[in-house]
Design a protein around this nucleic acid. Structure first.
Length: 246
DNA sequence: AAACGTGCCAACCGCTCCCTT
DNA sequence: TAAGGGAGCGGTTGGCACGTT
């Protein structure tokens, strides 16, 4: 059981902790050739590791922009707030903490913050270790305000969804569904992508808040394109993270 | 000093996403 | 439109370090 068993699946590959020599080989290779093509990296670099292992090692420890050292109180506060907003979406949380990785934040949360009482500024409570941010549960950010159901992360990418999205178009993921609509937050972009749960109830749009990449936006009567047809949408009122957190 | 318990975290696995053909 | 494969994400594991008995 354990690593010994799993490692034997690929007898020719090294597993476990990386050595200094391996780190140097990988760093040198990526310095010359750049990131990407992870499946071929081990072969080209001469490492007896799988591509996923190389990618993980590079992203979590070898990159030059990795921030070493303990999580600061400010970072801790931000992690807590972002976790209240986003749930266990470690990569999204890490994206707002320069130099920190999703793995590091995940470990920090599980070892230092999980299960401990947290501030309740956003009307939420601490999230159990294994709780998932899914469509069946209330959003971590849901408030008492009936017009503010949740805060939703936005990725800078368009997704068009069908009218039946609430039934089927969740791209195979159980924890969110994807939506798209014109973004006034980024005029240069035609679309934003949302992650929404409990969005549509009997074809009515019931959400009001979401977070774009750089700002938070509050919508009073949002709309979206559904099968080429626009549902009503109001002018967004931009609000700052500070306002949201205060 | 040795045994045991606990916490931390690097790394792995399985699943999903998404791009290309 | 579907299939295949690479990339990415989140949950989990296991070894090590350190503290306690």
């Amino acid at each position: 059981m354990g690593k010994t068993v799993r490692y034997s699946k690929n007898a020719g590959l090294h597993r476990g902790a990386w050595t200094v020599a391996e780190d140097m080989i990988l760093t040198d290779y990526i310095t010359i050739h750049g990131e990407g093509g992870w499946t071929s990296v081990p072969q080209k670099a001469g490492l007896k590791r799988c591509g996923k292992s190389c990618r993980l090692r590079w992203l979590n420890y070898l990159r030059s922009d990795i921030k070493l050292g303990n999580i600061s109180p400010d970072e801790k506060e931000l992690i807590i707030k972002l976790h209240q907003l986003l749930g266990n979406r470690w990569s999204l949380i890490a994206g707002r903490l320069p130099g920190r990785t999703d793995n590091e934040i995940k470990n920090y949360w599980n070892t230092h913050l999980s299960g401990k009482p947290l501030p309740n500024k956003l009307g939420s409570c601490s999230t159990p270790k294994t709780q998932k941010f899914n469509a069946r549960s209330k959003s971590p950010s849901q408030t008492e305000d009936p017009h503010v159901l949740k805060v939703i992360p936005v990725k800078p990418k368009a997704v068009k969804v069908s009218k039946e999205l609430h039934k089927s178009t969740n791209n195979g993921r159980s924890d969110h569904q994807d939506f798209a609509f014109p973004s006034e937050a980024s005029p240069s972009k035609s679309w934003c992508e949302l992650f929404v749960d409990e969005l549509m109830v009997d074809n009515d749009l019931e959400f009001l808040d979401f977070t774009p990449t750089d700002n938070f936006i509050k919508l009073e009567s949002p709309s979206m394109e559904v099968n080429g047809e626009y549902l009503p949408i109001s002018t967004p009122n931009f609000i700052d993270q500070q306002d949201l957190f205060s």
